[in-house]
Design a binder for these strands. Structure first.
Length: 199
DNA sequence: GCAAGGATCTAA
DNA sequence: TAGATCCTTGCC
């Protein structure tokens, strides 16, 4: 198990990883390590569940009606964070894909906590380890993501994703919580992980 | 099963 | 500027 920050940094995903087709990036992100570091803490989690939101023919994607003040970071270059506020309560963390101006992203729906667990529990105000990072709103809360993080780059040394060659078995399903384009098979999770919102 | 909650967008 | 909507969650 890799817990050394320098090793995580060495294996950080590069720009090219994020420029691929959104479905590919969403699948490839399963099993990767999400890392967030600040002065006092290092939070690490293994991504277990994602959803792709496309730049074309996807009515449930925020980008489907063009660029607005809310979704503008979704149109930035692949590898950018798109963080939005939803239902007056929660933030959701997305990873922008493809080239600048497209409007495609991958929603992080769940992850397995690996480091900084006490801080995640504090942020969530719960003690249940199993459910710390289950659900997009919960993932964002545990990592203390908010509007300030919208538009940040994942190529930085503070927030990034790292590859430790973890092997996964990807299951593909319909997405959760949407009312349009519901038939698209754009949700992905690791069959062998118990840290998934819904099997 | 459904309310909470606030930002955003559309229609007027 | 009112009203509907929203990639959710946790409680009833």
């Amino acid at each position: 198990m890799i817990m050394d920050y320098n090793k995580l940094l060495k294996n950080k995903l590069n720009q090219k990883f994020y420029l691929e087709e959104t479905e590919i990036v969403a699948k490839n992100l399963i099993g990767k390590l999400f890392v967030k570091k600040n002065n006092s803490s290092l939070l690490i989690a293994r991504i277990t569940e994602t959803e792709a939101y496309l730049d074309q023919n996807d009515e449930s994607s925020h980008s489907c009606k063009g660029i607005t003040n809310r979704n503008k970071s979704m149109f930035m270059i692949g590898g950018t964070l798109y963080v939005y506020f939803i239902y007056g309560v929660h933030f959701c963390v997305n990873i922008v894909t493809k080239d600048e101006g497209k409007g495609a992203a991958v929603l992080i729906r769940a992850a397995e906590p690996l480091a900084g667990i006490e801080i995640m529990k504090q942020n969530r105000q719960i003690h249940n380890f199993e459910k710390l990072l289950i659900g997009p709103g919960n993932f964002a809360k545990a990592f203390n993501f908010n509007k300030n993080d919208d538009g940040k780059s994942l190529l930085s040394n503070d927030i990034f994703i790292s590859d430790d060659n973890y092997s996964t078995e990807i299951i593909t399903t319909e997405r959760i919580g949407i009312s349009k384009s519901i038939n698209l098979q754009l949700r992905f999770y690791d069959r062998n992980s118990k840290f998934v919102s819904k099997k």
